[in-house]
Design a protein around this nucleic acid. Structure first.
Length: 828
RNA sequence: GGGGGAGUGGAGGAAUUGGUUUACUCGCCGCACUCAAAAUGCGGUGCCCGCAAGGGCGUAGGGGUUCGAGUCCCCUCUCCCCUACCA
């Protein structure tokens, strides 16, 4: 069986070696040529690549090779998102140092990628855990600090009381610690934040200006930013002059229906309002109860809302009435002001809480006739609302805000769901945050000339206790950059999303030593023309990278507003109805596949089985089919190699009928493949067009020759060469090999992409469908451009059509030129 | 609860502005080659009726617009993804 296969192993190794030795894919800025920046999301060096990687990198490689053949100067780089938690977990579990683990993984995976024959400029490879990389991120951190874009505050984190350590979200499994299974609690710690909220509006506006992005990704980003317009309103606390509960509402028009107010349990005001010991104890009990709510409980939206009524009362500023104040679990501190004005008449959540607590419900919008619901959230005429009565909801919102502002009780306000980006990680394997704490000067940034603040290597990682860096005295104990006195270094490291927020800029000048990147290089290459990656990064990575780019722009470092012009979100790789995973036992190992069938087959099937944006259903028989196809191409070419090499071009204007028809197929294939790649990355249909060409090539070769002797080899040579050029981006090794077998000294990838000869595309005759009352009854072969009257006459006279017209009258005839004739009849 | 996407043969998937439904691949069936098998090549393959010629029905279901609907409009069902007490 193996002996029947073409020698993909030797051939793939040979061409990979040749391309590497020739530095075939190395690029430099060239103002004389249009550039194309093709980028796939760089991998985390987890150990081995999986089929998802094969898919995304195959997609990117087709595009990069295609664009090169189209004359673009293509930047197509690769690197490693090398910081991250798994390296630390490996250290904890196997005692391997994260640096060693990471670098071993990188060298294994680099080799795997090279075996796929991907056309990267490997001279630009970057690894984010190297000081030469993260040095620049530290510099930008200091710049952001100076501008108030980086700041420090307390926030809540997941905390394992048994391991005495902070847990990342992915280390919390169903509310329990991934290692010791203890119940995870929340804890307040100091941490660093990037002020992404400052850019909320700009990030949102640009969502409308990125037509090259999938709509669903933009929608997810819009939802994530979550802009909502409303008002903040002060509810004075009864008997406490100067003290008020500030709430955010999107429905200021419903103020007259405000019958109680609610604070988030952890709201800071609660401590000020609760003085009495007994009440304080009740509050603490309630808070503990809410904090215990596990992940699973929180998922159940329909569970009863719990609350505790405080003794303090607040004033409804619209009515002047005193109303009760609660703390309740359905109000979260993370959104708005962490406090709400409750209007049970027009908010279902408030209604759900008000009814069991016996709270009054006031309707402030007239219900439409027949309304049977509970809270009413639709539009209508305002009622029971004093000066707002009679207005529509929208008009009442505007008037209520005017009134609040005139009476200094509140103001119009736009609120965002987007939170500032918490970048502190109490972790070892990340970029150190370049600040120190001095007893005299307080928090001080490291001096720029002292950067990078290098991550020390002599660290014990146990997974217990706080940040591992805190246990490295040589790292922690330092000198204050300002006064020279003793100071302690920050021991938090940065979120790995920071590295991936600018790596695409570093690729422009990866070895540049005087800054993040060389300005001219970035101006030439940026923005990324096509970015390709998984949908799982639809929000976080893609939003952070957009934010970071805007920050760098405002720091005067880059000119672009957005990093990625085009985005392709590829689907998952599925097998047997489920995502490939070790636990499901349905993984296909790329190494095995490359060894048994070759990289070209692996690439071909990944691209053929589904369009890139859809999930790909892996099928071992299908992979065999892809391999069979390449064998077919191989055998055909070798079987005719002498004939093909000796062929002399035929005159295109003097071909036999059969020869002309065959040549037309070849040139139609060029157009189809080009359009499929160009328009929508429909590589699957591009490949099927190439397969059809191969089928036709076989048919042409097998049929008895009727044409002049020279014509046949000439047409076959043109067909095979076209086939190889079209196949090249998909299956570069076999295409390059056969190209050289045909006698070409120069690489196929130095050749321009083929262009269809418009003369070859001309058809003398076309098939026209004849319908009677919308049903296909016959087909006619007519001259291209035949007149409608002529085609109609032929159709009406057609033997297979006439019986359907008997005893009926022709009402009208619809002619679609070059396509069909529809004869519409009615009974006589 | 909110948002987004998808339902086409036995399977993955194709179908220009509404114009031949099911390209290509897999699977299955048949034939050739072979002592045999594999490999390879060629042919067939939506469902139903029919010896055949041919006809009827078919793109989740129901309605509508149209000479003509997988495609456009309305309703219903199913599945997938994201998100979540967002005030």
């Amino acid at each position: 069986m193996a002996s029947d296969r073409y020698p993909f192993r030797e051939l793939e190794a040979k061409w990979q070696g040749t391309w590497e030795a020739r530095k075939e894919f190395r690029v430099a800025e060239d103002p004389g040529r249009p550039k194309f920046y093709c980028l796939e999301m760089f991998p985390y060096p987890s150990g081995r690549i999986h089929m998802g990687h094969v898919r995304v990198y195959a997609i990117g490689d087709v595009l990069a090779r295609y664009k090169r053949m189209r004359g673009f100067n293509v930047l197509h780089p690769m690197g490693w998102d090398a910081f991250g938690l798994p390296a630390e977990n490996a250290a904890i579990e196997n005692g391997v140092h994260p640096a060693i683990w990471t670098h071993e993984n990188i060298s294994y995976m680099r080799n795997q990628l090279k075996q796929l024959g991907l056309s990267y400029d490997w001279d630009r490879e970057i690894t984010t855990c190297e000081p030469a990389y993260y040095k620049w991120e530290q510099l930008i951190f200091i710049r952001m600090l100076e501008r108030g874009l980086a700041y420090r505050r307390r926030s809540r984190v997941n905390w394992c009381p048994s391991c005495q350590t902070v847990l990342a979200n992915e280390q919390v499994e169903a509310g329990r610690c991934w290692r010791c299974d203890s119940e995870v609690t929340q804890k307040e710690v100091d941490g660093w934040f990037f002020k992404i909220t400052k850019y909320a509006d700009e990030l949102l506006e640009w969502c409308e200006r990125l037509p090259g992005w999938p709509e669903r990704v933009m929608t997810m980003q819009r939802n994530w930013i979550g802009r909502s317009e409303g008002a903040e309103v002060d509810l004075p606390v009864v008997g406490r002059p100067g003290l008020a509960v500030r709430v955010f509402t999107t429905r200021p028009d419903t103020g007259f229906g405000l019958t109680y107010a609610v604070l988030a349990p952890e709201h800071p005001l609660v401590d000020k309002l609760v003085a009495d010991g007994g009440e304080r104890a009740a509050v603490e009990r309630f808070r503990a109860e809410v904090a215990r709510a596990t992940e699973i409980e929180r998922l159940a939206t329909d569970r009863p809302k719990r609350g505790l009524r405080l003794r303090a009362r607040v004033v409804n500023p619209f009515t002047g009435a005193e109303v009760p104040l609660f703390i309740a679990d359905y109000v979260v501190m993370a959104y708005g002001t962490g406090a709400i004005m409750a209007v049970p008449g027009e908010d279902q959540r408030d209604w759900d809480f008000a009814v069991p607590h016996g709270l009054p419900i006031v309707e402030t919008v007239a219900r439409p006739a027949g309304f049977r619901g509970q809270a009413y959230t639709g539009d209508g005429t305002k009622i029971n609302s004093g000066f707002l009565d009679g207005l529509s909801v929208a008009a009442a919102k505007r008037k209520a805000i005017e009134w609040l502002e005139a009476n200094r009780l509140g103001e119009g306000k736009v609120n965002y769901r987007l939170r500032d980006w918490g970048i502190s990680r109490q972790r070892y394997w990340g970029a150190p945050i370049p600040v120190l704490y001095c007893d005299r000067d307080g928090m001080v940034p490291e001096k720029e000339e002292n950067l990078p603040v290098v991550l020390p290597e002599n660290v014990q990682i146990s997974g217990k206790g706080g940040s591992p860096l805190a246990d490295v005295p040589s790292f922690v104990n330092a000198r204050c950059p300002r006064c020279g006195g003793p100071a302690k270094r920050e021991t938090d490291t940065m979120d790995t999303f920071v590295e991936s927020s600018w790596y695409f800029l570093r690729y422009c000048s990866p070895r540049y030593e005087h800054g993040m990147f060389e300005r001219a290089a970035a101006e030439y290459w940026m923005p990324v023309d096509q970015y390709i990656g998984g949908i799982e990064h639809a929000v976080l990575h893609l939003l952070y990278a957009r934010f970071y780019t805007k920050v760098l722009r405002d720091l005067g470092l880059v000119k672009v507003d957005e990093p990625f012009i085009g985005l392709l979100s590829q689907g998952m790789v599925i097998k047997d109805g489920a995502k490939m995973s070790k636990s499901k036992g349905n993984v296909v190992d790329p190494d095995d596949l490359i060894r048994t069938l070759g990289a070209d087959t692996a690439r071909l099937f990944s691209l053929f089985a589904a369009p890139p944006e859809k999930d790909l259903d892996w099928n071992d028989h299908g992979v065999e089919g892809a391999s069979r196809f390449l064998n077919r191409v191989w055998r055909f070419t070798l079987a005719h190699v002498d004939e093909l090499r000796q062929a002399v071009p035929a005159r295109a204007d003097a071909l036999s009928d059969r020869g002309r028809a065959f040549r037309r197929s070849v040139h139609e294939t060029i157009d189809r493949v080009t359009a499929d790649i160009e328009n929508a990355f429909h590589f699957n249909t591009a490949i099927s067009a190439i397969m059809e060409l191969v089928n036709e090539l076989h048919a042409f070769e097998a049929a008895p020759a009727q044409e002049p002797r020279q014509e046949r080899p000439a047409l076959m040579r043109e067909a095979v060469e076209t086939l190889l050029l079209l196949l090249g981006p998909f299956c570069p090794h076999i295409a390059e090999e056969l190209w050289s077998v045909l006698g070409h000294a120069e690489s196929l990838f130095r050749r321009p992409w083929p262009r269809a000869d418009s003369g070859a595309l001309i058809r003398e005759e076309i098939t026209v469908v004849v319908q009677v009352d919308g049903k296909v009854r016959s087909r006619l072969t007519v001259e291209t451009g035949a007149r409608a009257e002529h085609v109609t006459a032929l159709a009406l006279a057609d033997d297979r059509v006439r019986p359907w017209l008997a005893s009926r009258q022709v009402a009208r005839v619809v002619v679609v030129p070059g396509r069909l004739v529809n004869i519409v009849t009615h009974a006589t």
